[in-house]
Design a protein around this nucleic acid. Structure first.
Lengths: 203, 203
DNA sequence: GAACGCATGTAATCAGTTACATGATTGC
DNA sequence: GCAATCATGTAACTGATTACATGCGTTC
């Protein structure tokens, strides 16, 4: 599909990584913003990132171990008495470079999975009731996501942060995500109205 | 996170599958619409589904083999002279039931990855030029996707099909996808304008 | 004679999910 | 006494990508 010129087979030692592995870079980015433990990272995902990326604890902790082994982050154990100890990680110089390299790289054009649309596409093979139920629960899901963004905006939107310049792009991302959620909601609600009309044409 | 009651450990022979493995079901759905070869399936992905799901040839062919082994599809070899032979698959009764079962199941709430937003989120750690470049190439990508949908509408939108009832939901999916692409485009263009203004404030 | 369309696959690897495992403290 | 929050991980598995492998016919 895309031709790959292999005329220059040598000379690829520059950086030993070329995109993908997005999670690694997201985590580097988070640790650039401030030093954090695996637990903190998980929290940040849930609070601020979950609508376009997420990871389970298992993946987070193994990735932290990898990043540490690769020398991109340093670890420090914070001893606590009435709570389990924390391992707090912070970016090294090499980690900063890796992050900056990723930021400058083009975003690879990979398709975005959407299981809802995939199922809806085939709803003609089921009944309209089934389609309606999916649309309704999708609407609930969208409303929940929008409510969560609203909550996050209040809770974390206007607090002093260590990296103020990050805030601007975080707002942009939120604006983007909110816009597409709302656009999806509109189409969903119109479709629900149409179907309800058809299935239940009283009044 | 979600508790799983294991009080009823027995009794799970009903259907040996419970969601996930979306690709399998998409392929069953496509074969329900009409019998197809792996090659046809790949084409259909590219033409009609690629914006919210896709798969490489390797995955398509191995999945076809699995579905066949599971008795959900039948295979027939179509001998051709001036072209490689084709293996055309069609749904069995068991396959239809599996599909219908999936269609009635709730869509599991899994987050949707978006590498563009993930990178944009951290663009405060780079320069505005970098962010601008990403936004511009994202705009191109959105325009390309919209153009492709336009093309698909003309090419495949108004032709007789074996399963006319499918068409309605396919149109809805297209409408949905188009709406969110346009919403994203709008935000992207506004952000580009803002950045260009800032980086290059002549006139 | 190069590139493209047709047509099918295998092997190795990587990313991501699920299940499992532990344990103290705080609030209801 | 029960659930939630804090806190860190390992092992097994499944889903998805990348690289590799083949080969004929048609069009430029």
């Amino acid at each position: 599909m895309r031709e790959q010129l292999e005329t220059l087979t040598e000379g690829n030692e520059t950086s030993e990584s070329s995109s993908r592995n997005t999670l690694r870079y997201i985590m580097l980015g988070l640790l650039w913003a401030r030093p954090m433990s695996g637990y903190d990272i998980k929290q940040t995902f849930e609070r601020a990132i979950a609508s376009y990326w997420n990871a389970g604890n298992s993946q987070i902790y193994t990735t932290l171990k990898n990043l540490h082994k690769a020398g991109l982050i340093d670890a420090e154990i914070i001893v606590q008495t009435s709570r389990p100890n924390r391992k707090v990680y912070r970016l090294t110089r090499a980690g900063e470079e890796e992050l900056s390299h990723w930021l400058q790289e083009d975003v690879p054009e990979r398709f975005t999975k959407d299981e809802f649309l995939a199922k809806l596409f085939f709803c003609g093979a089921a009944s309209d009731d089934v389609a309606l139920a999916h649309l309704q629960s999708h609407r609930e899901s969208l409303l929940k996501q929008l409510a969560h963004m609203e909550w996050a905006r209040r809770e974390y939107g206007s607090r002093p942060v260590r990296r103020p310049h990050l805030l601007e792009y975080q707002l942009l991302v939120r604006e983007y995500k909110e816009a597409i959620l709302k656009a999806g909601l509109e189409v969903t609600e119109k479709a629900i109205a149409r179907l309800e009309q058809r299935l239940n044409p009283q009044s």
